[in-house]
Design a protein around this nucleic acid. Structure first.
Lengths: 123, 123
DNA sequence: TATATATATGAATGTATATTCATATGTTCA
DNA sequence: TGAACATATGAATATACATTCATATATATA
């Protein structure tokens, strides 16, 4: 029977426990955590979050986004590519235009949760 | 009565609508969106997400994290500072040790949502 | 077919930031 | 008080990446 680690001590220094190993074992794989980090990273950039925030309201084409965000078309397209690649937005072509939307409910939910957290922690 | 924009055209080029302006008006402030981006950015880094993933399981002190993640203590501390500053983790001191935990339910929820999205989109 | 429009993308550049190294701070205990 | 330990932090460096510029691709229309 393993000794329970005391919360009063640095458990890694308790010679007779293997909690460190247990925590290690229960960690998701590094591969998965890397994907998760990359997923969040996409939300973690000012221009991209502005794009997502606009698409939250409605499907929009690239030139709409250019006007709404008052930014270079090239910059918008580059960021849209990042969003596409990470499956955070979907798009459909229609004539010369390409219309973007948020990919699924997860994306809406994450934006909601994030905003909620911000608002609670802002004075 | 304003004309409804056609979904078939780039609405910004429809001279008789102000949808672009309406979307602009309904955007959260740039200040708020910047905070939101910075919040997500903190989750969007491999080392930090590994730290959060370990803390998801249990309160841990710095030296535990050093062992679990097999990383430089300095690197861990630097990243813990980022996590502290963004109110994503809390800490308590106890003797020489400093114990960290995830700050609130939002953090658990975001990690859950993110993982769920990843798992759905991974083949 | 030639031109205009919408979008995408490669290369270059500047900025942000993660890690490392060295060292400082703070705590315990002999 | 001094030595050992846990943690934090400033500076330097290397890497990642957002934006811009120039240009390519694709579609519509005259």
């Amino acid at each position: 029977m393993k000794k329970q680690p005391s919360h009063d001590a640095c458990i890694s220094k308790c010679a007779t426990n293997d909690y460190i190993d247990q925590i290690k074992e229960h960690l998701p794989s590094d591969q998965l955590l890397l994907e998760l980090a990359n997923f969040f990273k996409v939300f973690g950039e000012h221009t991209r979050i502005r794009i997502l925030s606009a698409l939250y309201q409605r499907e929009l084409c690239v030139c709409d986004l250019v006007e709404i965000l008052e930014m270079n078309q090239s910059a918008i397209s580059h960021q849209l590519r990042v969003l596409r690649t990470s499956k955070i937005v979907r798009y459909r072509k229609e004539g010369k235009n390409v219309y973007y939307t948020l990919d699924d409910e997860h994306v809406y939910k994450l934006l909601d949760d994030g905003l909620e957290h911000i608002k609670e922690n802002s004075p």
